[in-house]
Every structure is written in C-alpha cells, then in structure tokens.
Design a protein around this nucleic acid. Structure first.
Lengths: 191, 191
DNA sequence: AGAACTTGCAACAGTGATGATGCAAGTTCT
DNA sequence: AGAACTTGCATCATCACTGTTGCAAGTTCT
C-alpha cells in the first residue's frame, strides 16, 4: 500500500529501516537509552539519526507506526471474523507473536497515552472481543468468565510468551492457547 | 526488626515515608519523572528529598528495599512450605496482591539488573518453585506442564490482577487462581 | 526559654542529552 | 564526467536534571 510496504529503493530508506531496527534493539533493553547509543547500534552518526527523525519523539512515533502496521497485518492474516474461532485464535497468536518478538518495545508503547496508539489499541481490542464472543458462542470459552478479564489474561500470556525466546512461534502459540483454555491445574479447581 | 518496622518517631521518619509513597505514585505513572515531580507530589521541597536520599539511585533503592521487606512478609505469612498447597497459594496470592497494588513500581524494579534485587527475586522464585512442586505432587497441578512456564504464567496473572483496580484482593486472588488452574476454556482443549 | 533539629528557599556548578549547522568526502544516477 | 544526494565529523547553543550549600524560619523536646 504505502511506502512502508514497498521495496526499498534508495540508501536513505535503507538507513531509516536500519535505524528503526537498531532503536528497537536498544530501547527494548533500555528505554532511556540516548540517541547516541541508538546511532551507534545502527552503525551511523548521531547527526544522521537527527536528519531522518526531527526529534526523539518522532523516532519513537515512527517505530510505533511501523510496528502497528505489521501488527494489523498479523491480525488480518488470521481472518478473525470469518475463520473458526479456535483456528483464528491460533493463527492470530502465531502471527502476533512473530511481530511482538521483534518489536516488543514499539508495541509496548501502544499502552502509553499517545492518542493514535490508543485508537489502534482500542480497535484491536474490539476485534479481539468479537473473536472471543464468537468463541464463547461456539462453546469454546466458558460463559462464566468476565470477557474483559479473559482478554486481559490472553494479552498477558502473549506478552509472557513473547519474552520467552526459546522455541518457535508455532510451539509457543500452541502452549499459550493450551494454557489459556485449560490452565495449569488438573481440573478439580478450588472446590 | 529494623527501623523500617518500628513505629515512626520523628518528623524526619514520617517525611521519609511520605517521600517513598509519593515516589511510588509518581514513578509508577512515569518511570522517568524528575526528582522535582516526586518532591512536589510529596509536598516537600526538592532539597529535602536530596537531604534524605543522597541520590536518585539511593531513593529507588530505598523504595525497593521497603517493598521487598513487605513482599517477603507477605509470602512468609502464607506459610508456603507447610500449609496445604492450595491454601498457601491462595493466601500468598492475596498477600502479594495487596503489596503489589501499592508498590508496583518498586517491585517491578526487581527484574532489573540490580544484584541485590536479583538475589531476592531468585529466592522468591525458588520458594514458588517448591510450592508448585508440592502442588504437583498433591495432584493439584498438571504434570505435563513445564514448571518454569507454569510459574511465569502465575507471575503474569499476578501482574495483571494487580493492574486491575476494581475489586478486593480476596476476589481478585480467587479469580486469578481459578483462571490459573482451569483456564478460560470449556475443557475440550485444542484438538 | 533555649538547644537541637528540620524545612523551605534561593542560588550555584556540573553534567549529559538534544537538536542544528557547515563542510568535505563518498555514492548513485544520468 | 557532472549533478544530486547522503553521510561522517566537528562544532555550537540550549536545556533539563542532578546534587550541593548557606541562611532564615519553624518545630519539637527538655
């Protein structure tokens, strides 16, 4: 669609990508890292970063926009509105985990007070709500669990699985959904 | 034991407490907040903060020490080594949630690279491991779930429940453990 | 009341990050 | 080869935050 999905053309665009990826690496380890550290990780001079991004805020915004784009694509590809609930849930989880592993910092910023980020997050949450609602009607999800809490649990598990670096996204997603649906207990519950 | 558990005596000690609590409030909303903002929230001059805490690092260390103290007390009070696994798990969850709601920032810092904080966290994790192991032997936890993953899920749920501000810790803990053990699915699982 | 202590205020120096600019050298495209 | 563009380097101004100190005013305790 836009320039972000087009094949890279000039050195300038390649440099932008390099900086974005370096910024993600550095900021995910230390959110307070300086522009100097980001530039160093990208293998460019600090002035180059400032030429491409007017300010630190502009850089972080660009990271969030890039990550949001891939995030939306990951969800779309799972056809959450039409595919069988469990299939869509699994596919969306795999896709999102792939993005979240590479763009954890940029995506975590979606929870901040940025208006645009909040809008995107609200939209994704609404789609997740519809998917969970369909799953409940299909008898996959318990009806006695607060829908909001169920989603929050799902998000928390996604976050946790993305931190875990061992294993393929497929295996991580399978374990995640198994835990989400069955928990870690034997079934007798709290009595 | 030490001066932290003793009744407050002078204005100075009261001021220290006020600053610690204000710092928790401010830093939990914005980890990069300045000393000025913390002082303002505490209702004191910035110089007073610097008189009580030699540096910003010293302040954060004091917050972590205070939170760790209450954290350890919360776990001890649940008798995780001797009480029946489910009882201990529930009681520890309630106690920890109370602390985590009030000292979320200070406790989240335990995951940083501070050596002392890492030591405390490792010790707590070890006690949790023993408790989960007992729960498994008692038939409460599934034997086919990776123990480390089970603990990570539990930590993630605790974190999530602590964010949720609605409801008493008792109810939050009950829902948390129900989800941990049974999940949010109806039981048929993935296949 | 007097001593000891604590606080607020104002002022200061030091430090590190941010952002801008001019210039020389290198690259890519025509 | 020449034009357009991009980069690295050195430099500069600015700014916010940190941490310190002296002094006056207020308090708590005896």
């Amino acid at each position: 669609m836009s320039e972000t999905t087009r094949a890279l053309r000039s050195d300038a665009e390649r440099t932008v990508r390099t900086i974005l990826e370096a910024a993600e690496r550095v900021l995910s380890k230390n959110p307070a890292a300086s522009m100097e550290q980001i530039a160093e990780a990208a293998g460019v001079a600090r002035t180059t970063v400032h030429r491409r991004f007017a300010s630190r805020e502009a850089l972080v915004d660009a990271m969030a926009a890039w990550a949001n784009q891939r995030f939306a694509e990951a969800i779309d590809a799972a056809h959450p509105e039409t595919a069988p609930p469990l299939v869509a849930l699994y596919q969306a989880t795999v896709n999102v985990l792939r993005v979240k592993i590479d763009w954890g910092f940029a995506m975590s910023r979606m929870l901040s007070d940025d208006p645009e980020a909040a809008r995107v997050h609200a939209e994704v949450d609404a789609r997740c709500e519809r998917l969970f609602s369909r799953a409940r009607e299909a008898g996959v999800l318990r009806a006695d669990v607060d829908p909001l809490w169920a989603r929050r649990v799902y998000y928390a598990l996604c976050h946790e699985a993305a931190q875990t670096r061992d294993g393929e996204p497929d295996a991580l997603a399978a374990r995640l959904i198994d835990t989400l649906l069955r928990g870690v207990g034997t079934g007798q519950g709290l009595a």
